[in-house]
């Protein structure tokens, strides 16, 4: 039997491993394992390391996720975070209150961000535990999508349309930060970086605008990241820009449940690995039988020939998804994901 690392690398190489890799992206669930609040859980690197290792043992996912929460990157820019008992922490008040604030904005140093340093420590400790047997997935919010948290979505849309020079300056600042942050995670032991870029999705901006903005930013940023990347549109659609995404050279793409996995697999044409696309919101109320049906459907659509990793469609399993559903997904992936997929017509 392959290790998770061998399985994932084989799939990324568009060959069939022993079974379909499963990225069960449980983050907050580590707090449940330790009996801690989400806030307490993320306050110490040791908690997250222990949580991730317990989740790995329980669900046998093919990756570890040192990622804490997206707002951590805003904390580095001077922002604060609002914690909830039952969901992911949100970025607090915008750090860019007026467009003019962008003129004075400087990229923060990773070493100065207490939360970022904690994530690096988690990454190092996980690497020490699993070595090269399990991929460790780092996360960096794209320079193009980070402003939604830095200044709010509405002011950001207006900035894109109405203030191109300030937009360009913000991209430069964020790009410098993103590159340093992604490379720091790789240096700490991350195997690859997920480049979260929901704003680039055609759900949020037109392809025409994407080509002038998010695509250019990705083309400039990704080559500076010294390791493999996967672009994730965080539930947003992407088929309309599939060739543009492929042109970035990314190794994988996170796919929305709103789109068809078979269409994605065909459109990828071996240029990148398709990751997805179980519905994380519906997952909350699945029965084990439904979980099995959904896993079987996804594998049937995209599993053949490798180049596919089974995962949820958002990049993070909601807190409300119960253990029995996660275990059912694991069991179904074992049952239906074993290569060769002779049952697939």
């Amino acid at each position: 039997m392959m290790t998770s690392m061998q399985r994932v690398l084989t799939a990324l190489g568009h060959r069939e491993p022993d079974k379909v890799p499963l990225f069960l992206l449980t983050t907050m669930h580590g707090a449940k394992e330790l009996g801690l609040s989400i806030r307490e859980y993320y306050s110490r690197a040791e908690h997250v390391v222990e949580g991730q290792m317990r989740l790995l043992a329980k669900y046998r996912s093919d990756c570890l996720v040192p990622f804490h929460y997206a707002g951590l990157e805003c904390e580095a820019f001077g922002g604060d975070t609002v914690f909830y008992d039952d969901g992911p922490p949100n970025a607090g008040a915008p750090v860019i209150r007026r467009p003019e604030d962008i003129d004075r904005l400087e990229p923060p140093k990773v070493a100065d961000g207490a939360g970022l340093v904690r994530v690096l420590e988690v990454t190092r400790q996980l690497k020490a535990r699993v070595g090269d047997t399990v991929p460790i997935i780092g996360v960096a919010i794209s320079p193009f999508s980070l402003p939604v948290m830095q200044m709010g979505f509405e002011p950001y849309i207006r900035l894109i349309y109405e203030q191109p020079e300030r937009f360009a300056r913000l991209m430069a600042v964020n790009q410098a930060f993103c590159v340093e942050w992604a490379n720091a995670q790789l240096a700490a032991g991350a195997t690859a970086i997920v480049y979260f870029d929901p704003v680039s999705s055609p759900t949020n901006i037109s392809r025409e605008l994407y080509l002038k903005t998010g695509h250019r930013v990705a083309l400039e940023t990704l080559p500076q990241i010294k390791g493999a990347t996967a672009i994730h549109l965080a539930s947003g659609r992407g088929l309309a820009i599939v060739d543009d995404i492929a042109a970035t050279g990314t190794a994988g793409v996170g796919v929305s449940t709103l789109e068809d996995l078979a269409e994605w697999k065909a459109a990828a044409r071996g240029r990148f690995t398709v990751i997805g696309n179980l519905n994380g919101v519906e997952m909350r109320r699945w029965t084990p039988a439904q979980a099995e049906d959904e896993v079987k459907r996804a594998i049937g659509k995209a599993g053949r020939g490798g180049g596919f990793i089974l995962a949820d469609n958002h990049g993070e399993i909601p807190w409300q998804v119960p253990e029995e559903v996660l275990l059912a997904i694991r069991d179904a992936a074992d049952r239906w994901g074993r290569y060769p997929l002779d049952w697939v017509e």
């Binding site: 849309i157 894109i160 349309y161 055609p202 949020n204 037109s206 605008l209 659609r237 709103l258």
Partner: peptide, 11 residues
């Protein structure tokens, strides 16, 4: 239906 973007509907 995915034919136009959020930014277009917002603006």
């Amino acid at each position: 239906s995915g034919r136009i973007a959020l930014s277009q509907t917002y603006m």
